[in-house]
């Protein structure tokens, strides 16, 4: 060590360089392993990134959300936001029992498809009794039946570069999941609630269940599913319409 450089300056420089290099490597690894959410920008984005990155590492073995007994099903389950879409095509489909309704699956898939409600009901189904946690603070337990999203994605043939699954809804709302939640066995396209056809107020004919995230990620009235390798081309690139209104894209907390 050059004697003319004060020891303190030298130590500070080395520490500073180590922190900078460490942060750079951490950022590269985080990007490489999908630990950075699309709404990572800004001061509040630091919190979104820490939460998403930490939870992705903690949940890398894909634990299942808690499931409950039939006796615990809530008699009172509020329906928020859109409870009856105004879209005339939706209103017509609704009156016809969703006979002509179609769900589009496209994007980075080998075989883009349009699925009818009968097609979706034709897949192997999963039934789960889970707790819906609204970000407002209330929560309720219900039984959901639907097709695991992974089966629909596999039927369409997801390409290896896929990073997000985007959803469009009939009320104009849109959102996305990363592949960890898209492939999770409890992530359903649900068409049944508490043993009955999914009520219109709860998103008929098909809504998303993504049990390890808050209520606002459980999209209702889904019309299209698009697999992508980037979030940049949707809205402001933050991954969801909610993120543009201040609600974090990842809602595992």
């Amino acid at each position: 060590m050059n004697r003319s450089i004060p020891r303190r300056t030298f130590v500070q420089t080395v520490l500073g360089a180590a922190v900078a290099a460490g942060s750079g490597v951490a950022a590269l690894l985080a990007g490489r392993y999908g630990l950075v959410p699309p709404d990572h920008g800004g001061v509040l984005g630091i919190g979104h990134t820490l939460t998403f990155g930490a939870q992705r590492l903690l949940l890398r073995k894909q634990p299942l959300a808690r499931e409950f007994d039939r006796a615990q099903i809530s008699t009172n389950f509020p329906a928020l936001n859109t409870t009856l879409p105004e879209d005339p095509d939706y209103q017509r489909d609704m009156k016809q029992g969703f006979r002509d309704w179609r769900l589009i699956v496209d994007g980075l898939v080998a075989r883009p498809v349009e699925l009818s409600l009968a097609d979706i009901r034709g897949f192997p189904s999963r039934t789960q009794i889970t707790q819906h946690v609204c970000e407002y603070g209330w929560s309720a337990i219900a039984e959901w039946t639907g097709v695991p999203l992974s089966l629909v994605l596999n039927a369409a043939g997801v390409q290896p570069q896929a990073r997000y699954v985007f959803f469009n809804c009939v009320d104009g709302w849109w959102d996305s999941l990363d592949m960890a939640d898209a492939w999770h066995p409890q992530t359903l396209l649900a068409y049944s609630m508490n043993g009955q056809d999914l009520p219109v107020a709860h998103g008929a004919p098909v809504r998303l269940r993504v049990e390890r995230q808050l209520g606002y990620k459980h999209l209702k009235y889904i019309t299209a599913i698009t697999v992508t390798d980037t979030a940049r081309e949707w809205g402001k690139g933050q991954g969801s319409e909610g993120a543009e209104h201040g609600y974090s894209w990842y809602a595992g907390i």
């Binding site: 939870q55 903690l58 949940l59 946690v133 049990e211 390890r212 595992g252 907390i253």
Partner: peptide
């Protein structure tokens, strides 16, 4: 405990 993801990890 209020986080649905942590509830899955640590029921």
């Amino acid at each position: 405990a209020m986080s649905p993801a942590i509830a899955a990890l640590l029921p």
